[in-house]
Write a protein that binds this DNA or RNA. Structure first.
Length: 478
RNA sequence: GCCCCCAUCGUCUAGAGGCCCAGGACACAUCCCUUUCACGGAUGCGACAGGGGUUCGAAUCCCCUUGGGGGUACCA
């Protein structure tokens, strides 16, 4: 039997990080078993489903590189199929029309709550007579379709992650609605019909679906099919252990992209939440993880989202990139920062810049501030930089540096060729090298900290910006 | 309220009765490297929620308590 799994996001919002993790598990499982990964868009909620959310979900999965083999299949295009199944259940006497209004339902729940009981539908319309039914119809009431749930009855399944889970049908809230008054199918019905039609063998989803599982198993039985295997993964919680929400910094994959995370780092991190490879390695590609993945090694407890760890992982991936790849990844962020990349000396220069700053950043967005003095002219000076430049003897040293640089006959511009010039100035000015270096940094970059100074000096010189900066300092200090 | 699930350092986790006075990673602290900030290297800090069992022996098995999470829709 070949493995067929699916990701079934609902386009009522953007691609959520939790959905992305479910996608990762599905992808890993499918690839591990050489199976098929199907994407299905669950857009049966006409009021809340939006095309732009669907686009966001598709784009997010593509960005992450979680490629699917079939789909996307849209449930909204299969409404007739679900309606046919509803008719079938009605004909078989397994479902019935319920005319109870929302107000009556609400009233019932309030009474139940007041009595200290669990809110549930009391199946009051399960045995309506033909006359009663006609009376409601005459009132103009539009019925919902409810699927009969026999009580009491134990439903249990062996969850691939959690082991056996047992549910009593008494705790399911009464006969469940499978189609709304407007004839549209509801989630539980549509899921089961689709999973049957699509030949899904393993349903891998979040823990929040555990309570839906017994209802779905009942539906499988009613339709004459064996339920698939279920694997309910733990949820991802925010750092406080609560449900992830917008105020936790980011919940949608697109936001992580904008924040400068690499898709491979994010995937890696998501795979590492509640799963770990047997070898204990923490940095791995999903392709590698796929060869190792199984549910045995998935934890049962929810994991908190840790920004520090994600940042660290991302920094590790950034360091691994080749200069050319770095430039490619960094370019959108440089452009977003407003830098004009068309005027840089050449491609090699840009690669050298990328390499220079790569060690100092966790996220791609940080590159703009680190490389600003190399991509934008003129520069502004921070307060500490100005203080540094106003130290006694610094103005003269900078002037000497400018003169020395202007007169130097450099065979090539490199750390090797520039270093002697700095040493020469330090000696001539009788200035400590540390002081000179700090001052030089302030003059060239406008700040007292930043990437390696000599490398920065080289890049500036190659752009022809070093001398003008030293001269600008003269005017500044005059 | 009721039902279900879960419980090892601050966080992510390893651990499936003796290999564990519990290992790794992130974070944090100190030191080294360094013109700076980082990177890198070294060291340190730091946990089996509590209580009962079972057993020669429990982080590992069972029960209870506590805590956390999920569900309880004509949402998915």
């Amino acid at each position: 039997m070949t493995v067929r799994v699916r990701l079934a996001p609902s386009p009522t919002g953007n691609l959520h990080i939790g959905t992305a993790r479910t996608a990762v598990f599905n992808w890993l499982y499918a690839r591990h078993h050489n199976g098929t990964f199907i994407l299905r868009i669950e857009d049966t909620d006409r009021d809340r489903s939006l095309p732009r959310h669907t686009r966001n979900i598709l784009a997010g999965l593509a960005w992450l590189g979680l490629d699917w083999d079939e789909g996307p299949i849209y449930q909204s295009r299969r409404i007739e199929r679900y309606q046919a199944v509803v008719e079938q259940l009605l004909d078989q006497g397994l479902a019935y029309r319920c005319y109870v209004s929302e107000a009556e339902l609400e009233e019932m729940r309030i009474a139940q709550k007041a009595a200290g009981k669990a809110p549930r539908y009391d199946n009051r319309h399960r045995f309506l007579t033909e006359a009663q039914r006609q009376a409601y119809e005459a009132e103009g009431r539009q019925p919902v379709i409810r699927f009969k749930i026999e009580e009491p009855q134990e439903i249990s399944w062996v969850d691939l992650i959690r082991g056996q889970i047992t549910w009593n049908t008494q705790d399911l809230g009464g006969d469940m609605v499978i189609a709304r008054a407007d004839g549209y199918p509801l989630y539980n019905l549509a899921v089961v019909v689709d999973d049957i039609d699509m030949g899904i063998t393993h349903v891998i989803r979040g823990e929040d679906h555990i309570a839906n599982t017994p209802k779905q198993i009942l539906l499988y039985r009613a339709l004459g099919y064996e339920p698939p295997q279920f694997a309910h993964s733990p949820l991802i919680l925010n750092p406080e252990g609560k449900k992830l929400s917008k105020r936790d910094g980011a919940t949608s994959v697109a936001e992580f992209q904008q924040m400068g995370f690499l898709p491979e780092a994010l995937k890696n991190y998501l795979a590492l939440l509640s799963w770990s490879p047997p070898d204990g390695e923490e940095i791995f590609s999903l392709e590698k993880a796929a060869t190792l993945f199984d549910f045995e090694r998935v934890t049962r407890s929810a994991a908190r989202f840790d920004w520090d760890k994600l940042n660290w992982l991302n920094s590790q991936y950034i360091k691994q990139l080749s200069p050319a790849e770095l430039v490619e990844r960094l370019t959108p962020f440089w452009q977003a920062a407003g830098f004009d990349l068309t005027t840089v000396p050449d491609a090699a220069w840009l690669e050298d810049l990328a390499r220079l700053i790569a060690d100092g950043i966790d996220r791609l967005t940080e590159a703009s501030s680190l490389s600003r003095f190399l991509l934008q002219d003129p520069i502004s000076y921070t307060l500490p930089a100005l203080e540094q430049l106003r130290l006694p003897g610094v103005a003269e040293a900078m002037r000497a540096m400018a003169t020395t640089l202007a007169q130097a006959d450099l065979p090539e511009i490199s750390v090797q060729s520039l270093k002697p010039l700095v040493d020469q100035v330090a000696k001539a000015q009788g200035m400590k090298k540390g002081l000179l270096m700090k001052s030089l940094r302030a003059a060239l970059t406008g700040d007292v900290q930043g990437p390696d100074l000599m490398e920065s000096f080289v890049l500036l010189q190659r752009r022809g910006w070093a001398l003008p900066r030293l001269e600008a300092v003269q005017r500044l200090l005059a």
